[in-house]
Design a binder for these strands. Structure first.
Length: 573
RNA sequence: GUGCCUGUAGCCCAGUUGGAUAGAGCGUAAGUUUCCGAAACUUGAGGUCAUGGGUUCGAUUCCCAUCAGGCACACCA
């Protein structure tokens, strides 16, 4: 990576300068202590160069003015790949055309593997996300976790990790009975009985009054005789909802390796097993008829109940077993994506891992802020009794591509405003179309290179600039020498292409999927800009070939990035 | 009341761990098509980085306080 190249060369040069005592009081000890942190970044002003390293921070150790430091370092920098200049405390690097041409060569060589790091510490990662109750359709909030989670999985895989995607189904517990009771009412309504959910707010909380159970009731009656057996109804409704959820996830390009059933977890005996283990370790105590877990010992702000006075387990009891089971399965790292409304839950899960002798640092919980829906410029709150907008309605309205992109384009730390009207628009207000358009445009140029041209006025045809075979040969037999021709007018575009590598690294390490969305917009912008001032298909055949390679590189990188986001890269629009 | 997240241009947001004149996009103003997709491009205008302190040669960035918005504080899941 250019960033690393520049930084490492600078560090080497600093060492040499220190050895020759040209950096004042700066010693090798200070250098090795790690107190001095250098970063290579983009200069504010592009005229300065392509990369810059700020050495002013060394001034306090060296006790020399920053410009002198910079000049004394520059002396020891190699000169083959770039030219350098010193401005104040900055060393600016301008990459040579040859270096830039090699970027295109590398992309054409590696294609869909361009940007994959070579030697990373590969981790076996369990990524758990969405994990909704099977008691109703997904709402738009689930859509954010689905989009971000699957994109993160794609990203971490691309980066080189082993990623196992998991969905935890909360199919045990009282809410399933609640679902069955609610279905019972809908069935009776279908049969013409005059019955409805309770009016009283408190009593109504024991039911799911949403209309989504009406089709389930109809279907049930088609297949079964009416029954008051709540267990039968619960199971039916649960399976139905699970099926609906899975279909939607597939449609949304979200693929789980495993749907992990809480019910199975109970049946396996693991819940009791870990409960007993905590008990044996002396972490539990009894009070008011319930059994409590001393999570405060591990930093939680209050102790938690594991077994209620009525003898039933709490949700946490099963969740402890679930997380321990994940660790038992040999994952190096567990990543969970949770809504911010669950943040109070983090401490107790980490506490339980620690209490059971696991390493709580292996569990990484990404807390995501919630989603607001904007309809006609107004915020629509996902209120209890107001009509809820479901994920499938949203996808029907704006499409999979736009939904995925919009759900991923903001940092997980900020509340996402999802503006339906904007996401639907196919104009420059909508970044999804902007990026896809760039890809389609690049494809179009490649098509035109091998297509005969028809004059719109005269109707005369002129031969294609080159044959398909010749174009393929151009991509196959490229060399950076030949690509040099395209470089002078494409520098910032090439630098942006090269940035893909460091962007991926940053994004994977910080789990920040939104940086890919930003990158892809930047790259599209650089490409459109290049397109407007340079003709690709032109008289000078060497130049044309050189630029076609560049366009092919742009298309490749755009496609790679969009693949990670789960957004399609259309060849035509 | 306690904990977590947020506050940067009219709007929506970046700001890679403390450094050059604070950056994109949308919107807005003015331009750009006999030629590869104008769903595009170019150039402007627009900022007391919520407020007040502190640390530092230097703070949008780190610390403290205050204000504003969101979320959570169950023997629910």
């Amino acid at each position: 990576m250019f960033k690393e190249l520049v930084l490492n060369d600078t560090l080497d040069a600093i060492k040499k300068a220190v050895q020759n005592k040209e950096l004042g009081e700066l010693t090798e000890e200070i250098l090795n202590s790690g107190d001095i942190k250098l970063v290579s970044e983009k200069p504010k002003n592009a005229d300065f160069g392509d990369f810059a390293v700020n050495v002013a921070s060394m001034a306090r150790y060296a006790r020399i003015a920053p410009p002198v430091i910079a000049n004394n370092i520059v002396k020891y920098l190699p000169t083959d790949n770039y030219t350098t200049s010193v401005v104040a405390g900055f060393i600016n690097f301008k990459l040579s055309d040859k270096e830039l041409a090699q970027v295109i060569e590398e992309i054409l060589d590696k294609k869909e593997n361009f940007g994959k790091p070579e030697n990373i510490k590969k981790e076996k990662i369990n990524l758990e996300y969405v994990s909704a109750n099977p008691t109703g359709p997904f709402h738009i909030g689930h859509g954010r976790w689905a989009a971000m989670g699957s994109s993160l999985a794609n990203l971490l895989k691309f980066y080189g990790h082993d990623v196992y995607q998991e969905f935890y189904i909360n199919d045990a517990g009282s809410q399933i009975q609640k679902l069955g009771r609610s279905l019972n009412i809908r069935i009776k309504q279908e049969l013409g009985e005059n019955i409805d959910f309770p009016e009283d707010e408190e009593e109504r909380k024991n039911y799911y009054a949403g209309e989504y159970l009406i089709p389930v009731a109809k279907k049930f009656l088609e297949e079964n005789k009416p029954t008051d057996d709540i267990q039968v109804l619960s199971d039916y409704a649960k399976e139905y909802m699970e099926r609906v959820q899975r279909e939607l996830l597939e449609n949304f390009r979200v693929h789980f390796d495993k749907f992990y059933s809480e019910l199975d977890l109970h049946k396996s005996g693991k819940v009791e097993h870990y409960f007993n283990e905590l008990k044996n370790k002396g972490e539990l105590y009894e009070q008011d008829g319930a059994i409590w877990f001393k999570t405060t010992k591990y930093g939680d702000d209050q102790d938690r109940v594991l077994k209620k006075a009525d003898g039933a387990n709490t949700y946490l009891t099963a969740d402890i077993a679930y997380h321990m089971d994940k660790l038992d399965r040999g994952f190096d790292r567990l990543i969970n994506i949770w809504g911010a409304d669950h943040h109070g839950y983090v401490a107790r899960v980490k506490a339980s891992i620690e209490a059971l002798g696991g390493n709580p640092d292996k569990l990484e919980i990404l807390l995501g802020q919630l989603v607001n829906l904007i309809i006609n410029g107004e915020e629509v709150r996902m209120g209890k009794r107001r009509k809820m907008v479901t994920l499938d309605e949203l996808i029907d309205e704006v499409g999979v591509d736009a939904t995925r992109f919009w759900m991923s384009m903001r940092s997980i730390d900020t509340t996402l405003d999802f503006d339906i009207e904007l996401a639907k628009r196919s104009t420059d207000e909508n970044p999804v179309f902007y990026v896809q358009y760039a890809h389609a445009r690049a494809c179009s140029i490649l098509r035109n290179a091998i297509k005969e041209k028809i004059n719109a006025e005269t109707g005369e045809t002129s031969p294609a600039p080159m044959s398909e075979e010749e174009l393929n040969d151009t991509f196959k037999n490229f060399n950076s020498e030949a690509m040099l021709k395209a470089v002078p007018t494409a520098k910032s575009l090439i630098l942006k292409l090269e940035e893909f590598k460091s962007m991926i690294e940053y994004s994977a390490k910080t789990r920040a999927v939104y940086t890919i969305c930003r990158y892809v917009q930047d790259l599209a912008s650089e490409f459109h800009s290049f397109y407007n001032s340079n003709r690709v298909i032109c008289e000078d055949k060497d130049l044309m070939k050189s630029r076609l390679c560049l366009i092919y590189a742009v298309k490749t990188v755009l496609k790679n990035a969009l693949d990670i986001l789960g957004v399609s890269a259309p060849e035509k629009m």
